[in-house]
């Protein structure tokens, strides 16, 4: 059994936008037959700053501190509908890496 990729979805509270984004990403994983390859985690930014390297892919709907900025993909497109495709391209690249 191969190791599943860890995908973290985070927002400021871990309660509102990350929940919506999680639902959408789950659908997308299924549509692309990736749901057996990726495990989703949901949290808030402040809880994850110090263990961000445990994840393979990180999506955030909020601004993150500079030190983890390079690791994080902006998930706001999933809330506005603007820029979804290029966002998923980045996510896919990280999953396949």
């Amino acid at each position: 059994m191969h190791k599943m990729k860890k995908l973290l979805i985070m927002c400021g509270t871990g309660i509102a936008t990350s929940t919506v984004v999680k639902g959408k990403v789950e659908e997308w994983l299924k549509e692309n037959n990736l749901n057996q390859e990726v495990k989703i985690y949901q949290s808030k930014v402040s809880d994850e700053i110090n263990r961000i390297d445990e994840y393979d892919v990180v999506l955030s709907t909020t601004l993150v501190p500079d030190k983890i900025k390079d690791k994080v993909i902006n998930g706001v497109p999933l809330l506005t509908g603007i820029g979804i495709e290029s966002m998923y391209e980045k996510v896919l690249a990280e999953i396949k890496r």
């Binding site: 309660i15 509102a16 990350s18 929940t19 601004l63 998930g75």
Partner: peptide, 29 residues
């Protein structure tokens, strides 16, 4: 959202009072 310098002209506000992540999920979606 996700920015510290971009401003948005907002005309519609939904204030979310949510106790747990699953609460009102359908509505949020």
């Amino acid at each position: 959202m996700g920015s510290s310098d971009v401003t948005i002209e907002v005309k519609v506000v939904f204030m979310l009072a949510l106790k747990n992540p699953a609460d009102q999920l359908e509505m949020l979606q």
